[in-house]
Simulated scan of single mutants.
Amino acid sequence: MSTAGSEPHAPPVAAAAPGRYELVLPPGWIRIPLREGTKEALERVLFSHMGRVPEGIPRDDAMRFRLDMRRQLEKQARAARRNGGLDLYLPVLPRGGIFLMASFIVAEMPIGRDHAVPPQAVIEQLAAEEVPGGTAGKVDVAGAPALRRAYRCAPDEEGEQAAPPTRRVDYVIPVPDDPARWISINFSTPGDGDAGSEFTDVLVELFDAVVATFRWSYE
């Protein structure tokens, strides 16, 4: 297991708010920082972590596979950064000869700017909102209330007719002692192509287990 985390990059406040977060990653998962060091992290992914390619890809096509993967990861990283992303996490080692199709993003959120509204009230409001094809509810993250939202996205909702349905899980977490700072942890996976399969359920459970290790750091 490895510990990863990043700083939410917010202005200092009077209260002793945490400066960064930490979480424990499963074996084979890595962190790609999105604010700085992204290029170097991608290089490590492609030429260190991905020393092996999936079964069925000829040795002569290994470099092409890595270049295609790099383009996909760069596209994903740019999109996450535009949406306030701090870090992108994904599996890079194959399991049983295949690469898991899953990822999650830790990002800053533009909510909670009204300091008069307590974070718990914001969470309760979000939990009460209807989630088409899913559920939302209050949970505990790092010893404090947070929101967990789970749902499915059909291909036509994502504008990708050829893509399989995806399972999504979002956590919305207030930063302690700073009502203006919130982060989200957004997970997405097509699983094995069946959003309701046991295999896809296992990936969602793995993500929930990762979030259960989430902690704030004051160092």
Results as ranks from 00 to 15, higher is better:
192 D>V: 02
81 R>M: 04
5 G>S: 15
205 E>K: 09
201 D>C: 04
155 P>N: 06
158 E>I: 05
187 F>G: 14
57 I>S: 07
108 E>M: 10
28 G>H: 15
110 P>R: 03
24 V>S: 07
172 V>R: 01
47 F>N: 11
76 Q>I: 09
121 A>D: 15
203 L>V: 01
139 V>Q: 05
118 P>Q: 10
58 P>C: 08
17 A>Q: 11
123 I>K: 02
132 P>C: 01
105 I>V: 15
143 G>T: 13
175 V>Q: 13
182 W>N: 06
163 A>Y: 07
10 A>Y: 13
139 V>C: 11
45 V>G: 02
178 D>Y: 03
138 K>A: 10
15 A>N: 14
191 G>L: 02
85 G>T: 05
126 L>Q: 07
37 G>P: 12
39 K>Q: 09
187 F>I: 11
106 V>G: 01
35 R>I: 10
56 G>R: 05
212 A>M: 05
106 V>E: 01
199 F>T: 12
37 G>E: 08
102 A>H: 10
45 V>P: 05
216 W>I: 02
154 A>R: 14
151 Y>V: 00
120 Q>N: 13
110 P>Q: 08
93 L>W: 13
94 P>M: 12
211 V>N: 09
93 L>H: 15
173 I>W: 03
121 A>M: 09
113 R>P: 01
14 A>N: 02
60 D>Q: 13
103 S>K: 14
31 R>P: 12
160 E>R: 13
90 L>V: 04
159 G>R: 05
72 Q>I: 15
34 L>V: 11
107 A>D: 01
178 D>G: 05
91 P>R: 05
132 P>W: 04
116 A>N: 05
82 R>G: 09
83 N>W: 11
218 Y>R: 11
125 Q>E: 15
153 C>H: 06
113 R>A: 11
49 H>C: 09
213 T>W: 04
187 F>S: 14
135 T>R: 10
128 A>D: 07
144 A>N: 02
57 I>P: 07
214 F>Y: 12
31 R>V: 09
56 G>L: 08
148 R>D: 01
155 P>M: 06
51 G>E: 13
40 E>C: 06
70 R>W: 04
29 W>M: 12
188 S>H: 07
55 E>H: 06
123 I>T: 08
85 G>F: 02
77 A>D: 12
152 R>F: 14
58 P>R: 06
51 G>K: 07
155 P>L: 08
172 V>K: 00
3 T>M: 13
23 L>N: 05
80 A>R: 10
90 L>Q: 01
151 Y>I: 00
195 A>N: 00
26 P>Q: 08
118 P>G: 09
16 A>L: 14
